[in-house]
Amino acid sequence: ETQAGIKEEIRRQEFLLNSLHRDLQGGIKDLSKEERLWEVQRILTALKRKLR
């Protein structure tokens, strides 16, 4: 995994995270989306740690 590859994956995950946040802010309670949001946040945290 290169730095560029990790950064690209971070961009993808952040896009997905923002999309999930928008969907959930629409007021629709969706447990699967909430679980996915937490999963994406965990992935992002792990990726950012790899960059250090």
Score class of each variant (00 low, 15 high):
Gly5Leu: 14
His21Ala: 12
Leu51Asn: 01
Leu16Trp: 04
Arg42Ile: 06
His21Ile: 15
Lys29Thr: 08
Ala46Met: 10
Gln13His: 13
Leu47His: 00
Leu47Val: 00
Leu44Gly: 00
Gln25Tyr: 05
Gln3Phe: 07
Gly5Met: 14
Ala4Tyr: 07
Leu51Tyr: 03
Gly27Cys: 05
Ser32Thr: 10
Arg11Ser: 05
Ser32Val: 13
Glu8Gly: 03
Glu9Gly: 02
Leu44Phe: 00
Ile28Ala: 08
Leu44Tyr: 00
Trp38Val: 13
Leu17Lys: 04
Glu34Ile: 14
Arg12Gln: 06
Ser19Thr: 08
Leu44Pro: 00
Arg36Ala: 13
Leu20Asn: 00
Lys33Arg: 08
Ala4Leu: 10
Phe15Tyr: 11
Thr45Asp: 15
Ile6Glu: 01
Leu37Cys: 09
Lys50Asn: 04
Arg42Tyr: 05
Gly27Pro: 09
Glu8Cys: 12
Ala4Met: 06
Ser32Phe: 10
Asp23Pro: 02
Asp30Val: 02
Arg36Phe: 07
His21Cys: 15
Arg49Glu: 14
Ile28Met: 08
His21Trp: 15
Ile43Pro: 00
Ala4Asp: 09
Glu34Tyr: 15
Arg36Asn: 03
His21Asp: 04
Leu47Phe: 01
Phe15His: 15
Val40Trp: 02
Glu14Asn: 03
Lys48Phe: 08
Lys48Cys: 04
Lys7Pro: 02
Gln41Tyr: 13
Gly5Ser: 12
Glu1Ala: 10
Asp30Gly: 03
Thr2Phe: 11
Gln3Glu: 11
Arg11Phe: 04
Leu31Asn: 11
Ile6Trp: 06
Lys33Gly: 04
Ser32Ala: 14
Arg22Glu: 10
Glu34Met: 15
Leu24Gln: 03
Glu39Thr: 03
Arg12Leu: 13
Arg11His: 04
Lys33Met: 11
Thr2Val: 09
Leu16Asp: 02
Ile10Asp: 01
Leu24Trp: 03
Lys50Met: 11
Leu51His: 01
Ile28Asn: 10
His21Val: 15
Glu9Asn: 03
Arg42Thr: 05
Arg52Gln: 11
Asp23Met: 11
Gly26Met: 09
Ser19Tyr: 06
Arg52Gly: 08
His21Arg: 15
Glu9Lys: 05
Asn18Cys: 15
Gly26His: 09
Arg36Trp: 06
Leu51Gly: 00
Gln41Phe: 11
Leu24Thr: 04
Glu1Trp: 09
Lys50Glu: 06
Leu37Arg: 03
Thr2Leu: 08
Leu31Lys: 13
Glu34Thr: 10
Thr2Arg: 09
Gly5Lys: 14
Arg52Val: 11
Lys48Glu: 04
Ser32Leu: 13
Asn18Gln: 13
Ile10Phe: 01
Gly26Pro: 08
Lys33Gln: 07
Leu17Tyr: 11
Ser19Asn: 07
Leu31Ile: 12
Arg42Val: 06
Ile28Phe: 07
Arg12His: 05
Gln25Leu: 09
Lys50Arg: 09
Gly27Lys: 04
Gly26Glu: 07
Arg22Met: 11
Val40Gly: 01
Lys48Gly: 03
Gly26Phe: 09
Ser19Lys: 11
Arg49Pro: 00
Leu16Cys: 13
Arg12Gly: 01
Arg12Ala: 05
Thr45Phe: 06
Asn18Phe: 08
Leu31Cys: 12
Lys48Asp: 02
Lys50Val: 06
Ile43Phe: 08
Arg11Thr: 05
Arg49Ser: 13
Ala46Tyr: 07
Ala46Ser: 06
Arg12Cys: 14
Glu8Gln: 08
Ala4Trp: 10
Gln41Arg: 11
Lys7Gly: 03
Ala46Cys: 14
Arg36Val: 10
Ala46Thr: 05
Arg22Phe: 08
Glu9Arg: 07
Arg52Asn: 09
Ile10Ala: 01
Leu24Val: 04
Arg49Gln: 14
Ala4His: 09
Ile6Pro: 00
Glu39Trp: 04
Glu1Tyr: 07
Gly26Ala: 11
Thr2Trp: 13
Lys33Glu: 02
Asp23Leu: 12
Lys29Asn: 10
Gly5Cys: 15
Arg12Thr: 04
Gly26Tyr: 09
Gly27Thr: 08
Lys50Cys: 11
Glu35Lys: 14
Phe15Gly: 11
Leu51Trp: 03
Glu14Gly: 01
Asn18Glu: 15
Trp38Phe: 11
Gln13Met: 15
Arg22Leu: 11
Leu16Asn: 01
Asp23His: 05
Val40Asp: 00
Arg22Asp: 07
Gln25Trp: 07
Ala46Trp: 09
Arg12Pro: 00
Leu31Trp: 07
Leu44Ala: 00
Leu47Asn: 01
Arg49Val: 12
Ala4Lys: 09
Arg36Gln: 13
Arg42Pro: 00
Gln41Asp: 04
Gln3Gly: 04
Leu16Ser: 00
Phe15Gln: 15
Leu16Arg: 02
Ala4Gln: 10
Gln25Thr: 09
Ala46Asp: 14
Glu1Gln: 12
Thr2Ser: 09
Ala4Glu: 13
Ile43Leu: 12
Val40Pro: 00
Leu16Ile: 13
Leu51Phe: 04
Ile28His: 08
Leu44Lys: 00
Arg42Gly: 05
Lys33Ser: 05
Asn18Asp: 14
Ile10Asn: 01
Lys7Gln: 12
Ile10Cys: 06
Ala46His: 07
Leu17Gln: 04
Arg42Phe: 04
Asn18Tyr: 11
His21Thr: 14
Gly27Met: 05
Glu14Cys: 15
Arg49Asn: 13
Leu51Ile: 04
Gln3Arg: 10
Arg36Asp: 05
Arg11Asn: 03
Arg42Ala: 10
Gly5Phe: 14
Glu39Pro: 00
Leu20Gly: 00
Ala4Thr: 06
Arg36Pro: 01
Leu37Ala: 05
Arg22His: 09
Arg42His: 05
Arg36Tyr: 10
Leu44Arg: 00
